[in-house]
C-alpha cells in the first residue's frame, strides 16, 4: 500500500508529454546513429588502413556508443548528478584497474615451459 505513497513523478501533464516527444526524436536519431556506427565498425576492420588508426577509430566509436546509450537511453543527462557520480565512480575505478592490470602483466614474466596445455 505504500507503493503509491511516494512518488515525485508528476502526473503526465502537457509539458511533460512535450518533453517525452522531444526525447522520442532523440531516441530515434540515436538508434539510427548506433546502427550506422555498428555498420561502419564492421566494414572498418576489413579495410587496409594502418592498424593503429583503425584501433583508435574503433575505440572512439565504441566509446561514443557507450556514452550515448548511457546519456540518452539511460536518461543520465536528464537526471540528477548524483547518479552520474555513483556510476562514474564505479566506471572510473574499473577503468583504472583495467589499465593498471594491463601494464602489470607482461609476457616476459611468463615461464612458457611450465605451460604444457598449448
Amino acid at each position: 500500500m505504500s507503493e503509491a505513497e511516494y512518488h515525485p513523478l508528476p502526473v503526465a501533464t502537457e509539458s511533460h508529454k512535450d518533453s517525452e516527444t522531444e526525447k522520442y526524436h532523440a531516441f530515434v536519431n540515436l538508434a539510427l546513429g548506433l546502427a550506422a556506427i555498428t555498420g561502419i565498425e564492421l566494414v572498418l576492420v576489413y579495410l587496409p588502413f594502418n592498424t593503429v588508426f583503425i584501433f583508435t577509430v574503433l575505440l572512439s566509436l565504441s566509446l561514443f556508443k557507450f556514452i550515448a546509450v548511457i546519456a540518452w537511453f539511460m536518461h543520465l543527462i536528464y537526471d540528477k548528478l548524483i547518479l552520474t557520480l555513483a556510476f562514474g565512480t564505479g566506471m572510473a575505478i574499473a577503468t583504472g584497474t583495467f589499465i593498471a592490470l594491463g601494464f602489470l602483466f607482461s609476457r616476459g614474466n611468463v615461464d612458457m615451459d611450465a605451460i604444457t596445455g598449448f
Partner: peptide, 21 residues
C-alpha cells in the same frame, strides 16, 4: 577451466591481483 591452472596457461599471480584489488 584454466584461469589459475599453470599447466593450462593460467597465471596464479592473477589471483593475487584480483584478490588484493
Amino acid at each position: 577451466t584454466n584461469f589459475f591452472v599453470v599447466a593450462g596457461g593460467g597465471q596464479p599471480i592473477l589471483w593475487q591481483h584480483l584478490f588484493w584489488i
